[in-house]
């Protein structure tokens, strides 16, 4: 069918153009980050004369990007660990243990899933201020856990529902306590889902700006994304350094994407097919 093949190629052209439009902004930014200020002012489009990373090291050292980076790593690591711990425990309980009110709890989780941060931001900030948790690492970690826990529980519950109840029964007969079942069965069998959800939670926390902005007002506690926004004012006349700061913040996520694309896509679609 030559006509059919032609039609497919006709669709391929705009799709290729769109793919280019998807990639180009990042390529442009990377190129700008490699330029000297002089090169940028003279011609921002030409390829950078050399693969120099001066701007990147400048952004890293002088602007406090290193500090922001460390803040982000600390907060995201603890948040994701707690999310996976609480999420898998709750998912196990909701999917495999029958107890009074488990349905109500699951619905409560779903309801919480629909509450965006913006809606509870004001009272949450007040609660955090009253308890002295505002502008502290534990405060922000707690805010992230609270924000992304319903989603984590939802995905873990739907994953654990696919584990046959017989396996749990068998483990019980072998003398395992509830905790034993959780540790010996649920954690190993849940590993693929934990990985998938863990990556998504990492992305959510790493990429967040609003929660961090509200919960961590002081400059030395800025996470990386808030730090990037502050670069703009500081470096409005030094675009290459600004672009370098943007790249520093984007690189971890891009690496994650390159190596774990499958798991990310799995996590995104799990909500749509199982929901």
């Amino acid at each position: 069918m030559p006509g059919k093949r032609l039609g497919r190629w006709a669709a391929a052209v705009p799709m290729a153009a769109l793919a280019l439009a998807t990639i180009y902004p990042l390529v442009f930014t990377t190129n700008v980050a490699m330029k000297t200020r002089r090169e940028y002012i003279l011609d921002r489009f030409s390829p950078a004369s050399s693969l120099q990373v001066d701007n990147i090291s400048a952004a890293w050292n002088s602007v406090g990007m290193a500090r922001y980076f460390a803040n982000s790593v600390i907060v995201v690591a603890f948040s994701v660990l707690l999310l996976l711990l609480f999420g898998s425990m709750a998912g196990f309980a909701l999917s495999q243990l029958r107890f009074r009110g488990s349905k109500v709890l699951f619905l409560g989780c779903l309801a919480a899933l629909l509450i965006p941060f913006q809606v509870i931001m004001v009272p949450l900030a007040r609660v955090m201020a009253d308890t002295g948790l505002i502008d502290t690492y534990p405060g922000l970690i707690l805010a992230y856990v609270a924000q992304f826990l319903p989603f984590t529980i939802f995905l873990m519950t739907s994953h654990y529902r696919t584990i046959p109840a017989e396996i749990v029964h068998a483990a019980r007969i072998d003398g395992n306590t509830t905790y034993g079942v959780y540790r010996r069965i649920m954690i190993p069998l849940g590993a693929p889902a934990l990985l998938s959800v863990g990556i998504l939670d990492t992305l959510f926390c790493w990429n967040d700006v609003l929660i961090s902005l509200v919960m961590m007002p002081s400059a030395e506690h800025r996470t990386l994304m808030v730090g990037v926004t502050s670069l703009r004012g500081q470096y409005s006349d030094d675009i290459p350094t600004f672009a370098s700061g943007v790249l520093i913040a984007a690189i971890p996520v891009l690496l994650l994407y390159l190596f774990l694309q499958r798991q990310i896509a799995d996590g995104v679609t799990a909500g749509s097919t199982k929901g």
Binding site: L18, A19, W206, N207, V209, V228, L256, Q261
Partner: peptide, 24 residues
């Protein structure tokens, strides 16, 4: 190829996207 290319901006923070588009 398209699937992976199109999906990649979805992992970037709105802050990064916004900063990049400020330049574009």
């Amino acid at each position: 190829v398209y699937r992976s290319v199109y999906f990649f901006p979805a992992v970037l923070s709105p802050v990064i996207v916004g900063a990049i588009f400020n330049l574009i």
